[in-house]
Simulated scan of single mutants.
Amino acid sequence: MFTGIVEELGEVTAVEKLDDASRFRLRGPVVTEGAKHGDSIAVNGVCLTVVDLGENEFTADVMAETLNRSSLGALTTGSRVNLERPMALGGRLGGHIVQGHVDGTGRIVERRVSENWEIVKISLPDGLTRYVVEKGSITVDGVSLTVVEAGRDYFTISLIPTTLALTTLGLKEPGDPVNLEVDVLAKYVERLLGHGAVPEAGEPVA
């Protein structure tokens, strides 16, 4: 479980293409401190398992399913990535509950620069619109953010200078893909309401 508070802006140092997967080596002195084989680290919002460790680096295998459903397949040597270790039991939940399970990818549509922040418009894939509401939470490339405007096929977020400087969101250009994870609470509520719907008149109660 993660919080969406990025700990470090890391870097892809090598990519090895396998038959049905890719092996990434990533540099992250902060997230590798005390890490061990089998630990989880979120990379651009995708929960990956550490399979090997080196000096300030770790290696993770990414299967084809993840490469196809996230933006990790577009990473190359030198790409910058957002890194976060799982939240420690008893730690502060600084962002919101993030699972590291990407629901889909969007693309940066436009950036509007202001004096002290930027408004970023991101496309929203079919099927995710119902989970995105104004002032609700969403994870973009592993960053916990608040939705400013929720449209039918897009949403906007407001980025402060700290987020722009310390995450990949300060580097993304229009057209670039981003990983999206909607608030898991919204999905559970939908599921519960679907099963707990009140039957219409004349409909038998199970």
Rank of each mutant, 00 (worst) to 15 (best):
Leu145Trp: 12
Glu11Met: 15
Thr139Arg: 13
Glu8Phe: 14
Arg69Asp: 04
Gly142Glu: 05
Thr3Cys: 06
Pro204Arg: 14
Ile138Gly: 09
Leu166Asp: 02
Cys47Gln: 09
Val109Ala: 10
Thr163Pro: 03
Gly73His: 05
Glu203Lys: 15
Asp141Phe: 12
Glu55Ser: 10
Ala201Gly: 13
Glu16Cys: 00
Val120Arg: 11
Ile160Leu: 06
Glu57Thr: 14
Gly170Pro: 03
Phe58Gly: 01
Thr129Leu: 04
Asp39His: 10
Gly104Cys: 07
Thr77Asn: 02
Leu18Tyr: 05
Asn68Gln: 13
Pro86Arg: 07
Val102Met: 07
Leu128Ser: 02
Ala165Ile: 00
Val148Ala: 11
Gly196Phe: 14
Phe58Met: 01
Lys172Met: 03
Leu180Asp: 05
Pro125Cys: 06
Leu93Ile: 15
Arg191His: 15
Gly170Glu: 06
Arg130Asp: 09
Ser79Thr: 02
Asp141Gly: 12
Lys172Pro: 03
Lys36Ala: 13
Pro199Glu: 08
Met63Glu: 04
Val62Cys: 02
Asp39Thr: 11
Leu89Tyr: 12
Tyr131Trp: 13
Leu180Lys: 04
Arg191Ile: 12
Leu185Trp: 05
Val109Pro: 01
Val182Leu: 04
Val50Phe: 00
Leu171Phe: 00
Thr3Asp: 06
Leu145Glu: 07
Pro29Asp: 06
Met87Ala: 15
Arg85Pro: 02
Arg152Tyr: 09
Gly90Phe: 10
Gly34Ala: 09
Ser114Ile: 00
Leu166Cys: 03
Pro174Ala: 10
Pro29Ser: 04
Gly4Phe: 09
Met1Trp: 04
Phe2Asn: 05
Phe2Tyr: 14
Asp141Tyr: 14
Ala74Met: 12
Cys47Phe: 13
Glu16Arg: 03
Gly127Tyr: 13
Glu173Pro: 00
Ala197Asp: 09
Val30Gln: 12
Val140Tyr: 04
Tyr131Ser: 14
Gly78Pro: 01
Lys135Asp: 08
Asp61Tyr: 01
Glu118Asn: 09
Leu124Asn: 06
Val81His: 00
Asp39Phe: 10
Leu180Met: 05
Leu75Glu: 00
Leu171Val: 04
Val43Arg: 00
Ala186Gln: 05
Arg85Ala: 07
Arg112Ser: 04
Gly136Cys: 09
Gly73Thr: 03
Ala197Val: 13
Ala60Thr: 00
Gly4Asn: 10
Thr167Cys: 07
Val46Ala: 13
Ala35Gly: 08
Pro174Arg: 13
Ala64Pro: 00
Glu181Arg: 02
Val182Gln: 07
Phe155Glu: 01
Val98Ser: 07
Tyr188Ser: 06
Ser158Ile: 01
